[in-house]
Nucleic acid binder design. Sequence first.
DNA 1: TCACTAAATGAAAATCAATTTCAATAGCAA
DNA 2: TTGCTATTGAAATTGATTTTCATTTAGTGA
Lengths: 159, 159
Amino acid sequence: MREFLKTKGYKMTPQRELVFRSFFELGEHVSVDELFDRVKRIDKAVGYSTVWRNLKLICEVGLAREVTVGDGVTRYDRVTRKPHGHFYCLNCKSLQEFDLNEIAGRLSKVATAEKFATESFKVEIEGVCQSCRDKENKKAKRTLSTSPKISRTKPSRQK
Amino acid sequence: MREFLKTKGYKMTPQRELVFRSFFELGEHVSVDELFDRVKRIDKAVGYSTVWRNLKLICEVGLAREVTVGDGVTRYDRVTRKPHGHFYCLNCKSLQEFDLNEIAGRLSKVATAEKFATESFKVEIEGVCQSCRDKENKKAKRTLSTSPKISRTKPSRQK
DNA sequence: TCACTAAATGAAAATCAATTTCAATAGCAA
DNA sequence: TTGCTATTGAAATTGATTTTCATTTAGTGA
Ligand SMILES: [Mn+2]
Ligand SMILES: [Mn+2]
Ligand SMILES: [Zn+2]
Ligand SMILES: [Zn+2]
C-alpha cells in the first residue's frame, strides 16, 4: 500500500494508514461520518477533513467509488469484483447489491448505439426491502382497524 | 389544472400558475435555479422558495420526478410516457434519455427474485457524449504534440 | 544523521443546495 | 363580505461538503 501510493506521489502517514484500513474493514457503502466515527474510536485526534480527504484519495487511486442514492449523503463503495447495482430501501435506507453483468451488457449496447463513450453505469432500484415489509405485515396483523402504511416519503436532508 | 389541484386541497395562485406553466414549457431536467430564472423573467417578484415549493408540489402530485446525477444539483423531470434512463456527460453535464423498456423488464425480475418491492428504477450511464468527443477530436488534430485529454474529473459542488 | 521541501494534517471557516421559519397576504367556501 | 387556511417572500437555518491556513511530518538525499 505504501509503495502503491508512493508511485503516485503520495506519502504514507499514520492517519492515512488508519483511514485506509478502517475503510476496507467497514467495506461497503460507507459514509464519511461512519468512517470518521470508526477512525475516531482508534485515534480521536484524527480530523474530519483528514478522513474526508483520504476517502477521496481512495477513490482517486481507483479503490473505491462514490455512490449517491439521493438522500443527500454520499457513500463510498469499495471497488471489487464485477459491476453491481443497488437496491435502495426507502424505508430503512439500507443498500443491497445485485449482479449487473446481464444488464450491463445491454446498457453497453445502448451506449454504443447512441455513440456515447461509457465510463460507468449506475443502476438503482428504489423500493421497500423484504425485512421492512415483514415488519410492516406483523404490525398490520396487530392493528387491523387502521392502516399505518410505511412512509415512502423522500428523506429530508436534515438529521 | 386548477380543478386538479383543488381536489387535492391545494389553492391556485398566480405564482403557482406561473411556476407550473414555466416548468412544463422548459420540459426536461430542469433545476430549481433554471426554473427560478425563467419565472423571474416574467415576474421578478416571485420568490425562490415559492418556485422550490411548487416544484416539489409538481412532484407531489405525480407530474414530475427528481433526478440526481451526483453533481450536487437536483433536476426535475417531467413524468411522461414510458420509463427512460439517462446518459450523463461528465464533460458538458448534459443529459440525454434512452429507452428503458427492455432493461426495466430485467430489473423487475431481479427485484422480484430478491423480494424487493420496487417503487422505481434509476438507470444512468456516465461518460462522454458524442458532441464532446467530436470537439475533442478536432482539437487533437490541431495539437498533435500534446494530448489535452477531456477532464473527467467529478465536478466540484462550487460554482 | 540532518536538513530540506512538498505533502499532509486539524481546526475553523466557507460554500452551497436544500429546507424551514415567520409574519404578511390572498384564495375560496360559506 | 367574512373567516379560515393555504400560500407567499425574505431571511435564516440546516447539513453535507469543500477550502483555507498555519503547523507538522514523511520521505529524500547530502
Ligand atoms: Mn455497492
Ligand atoms: Mn429524463
Ligand atoms: Zn428496508
Ligand atoms: Zn458532452
